[in-house]
């Protein structure tokens, strides 16, 4: 980077100031790449799964893979600041998965997805999950070329979260209340969290799921199958 030649003090006192009222979008590069991903994956349903750390995203993917393996061709790209632990966990249950190590970064950017696509075989894949980095703030601003964003909120995190992280819930089509088996033991009301989320996003769907015990898994899998079918139908009419 070159450096300004004139000290600031001089600039302020002598000479004229030229002003350029320009608009340079700082997320332009990301949005451009997201568009390329959308074009490249036009026949795959892409779901960006966001949450805070440890809400149960990987466990949900694992259970989804087990249940839908004979109905759908599923793949997962999973982002973490470090380690390939989550991809290993998915592969253990037979899911086609690839780890994206963000190198400490707090969110996945579209460029990382585009690069990852060169390293995973998506032939015949109907549904691609992107498990985002655990963080309810930063990932909300980065379009990854997904069709649908889903936010997972664990019953242990408290039912007052949607309003605290509005952009995430605003941009999500579905809020999954995870670890629903723990609802009897924690002060968390599904009704209250639904109301809080709908004040930010009146259209958001809500589903309570326990990956551990299986509650809500049928509804979730049906929802996924319906979304995949919707995507395929939209391709036929297009």
């Amino acid at each position: 980077m070159s450096t300004p030649k004139y000290p600031k003090s001089n600039q302020m006192s002598v000479g004229s100031i030229q002003c350029d009222n320009t608009t340079l979008n700082l997320l332009k590069a990301n949005d451009f790449v997201a568009k390329a991903i959308r074009e490249k994956l036009s026949d795959v349903l892409v779901i960006n799964v966001c949450s805070s750390p440890g809400s149960g995203k990987t466990t949900l993917m694992q259970e989804t893979g087990k249940r839908l393996s004979d109905k759908l061709n599923l793949a997962v790209l999973v982002g973490d600041p470090e380690t390939d632990r989550d991809a290993v966990r998915m592969k253990e249950v037979g899911i086609n998965a690839l780890q994206i190590v963000t190198g400490g970064m707090c969110h996945i950017e579209a460029q990382m997805i585009l690069q990852a696509l060169d390293h995973i075989d998506l032939t015949g894949v109907d549904l691609l999950f992107i498990e985002n980095v655990g963080n309810l703030v930063c990932p909300a601003a980065f379009d990854l070329g997904e069709d649908i964003r889903v936010t997972v909120l664990a019953a242990t995190e408290g039912d007052d979260k949607p309003k605290k992280y509005p952009r995430m819930f605003l941009t999500s089509e579905l809020m999954v209340v995870s670890k629903a088996d723990l609802l009897p033991y924690v002060p968390f009301s599904v009704e209250a969290v639904t109301q809080d989320a709908r004040e930010v996003n009146p259209a958001i769907d809500v589903m309570a799921i326990s990956s551990l015990k299986g509650d809500g898994m049928d509804e979730w899998c049906d929802w996924l199958m319906a979304k995949v079918a919707e995507k395929k139908a939209s391709l036929e009419t297009a």
Binding site: Q11, I17, C19, D20, T22, T23, N25, A141, P202
Partner: peptide, 29 residues
């Protein structure tokens, strides 16, 4: 973050608020 109009209708049609941009640059002339 209450996306509800004064008339009572909810709306997510965002006109402004998601920007992250450079809006003005001044040069020493």
């Amino acid at each position: 973050h209450r996306f509800v109009c004064a008339c009572g209708t909810p709306s997510k049609k965002i006109v402004q608020g998601e920007e992250l941009q450079i809006s003005k640059v001044e040069f020493f002339g």
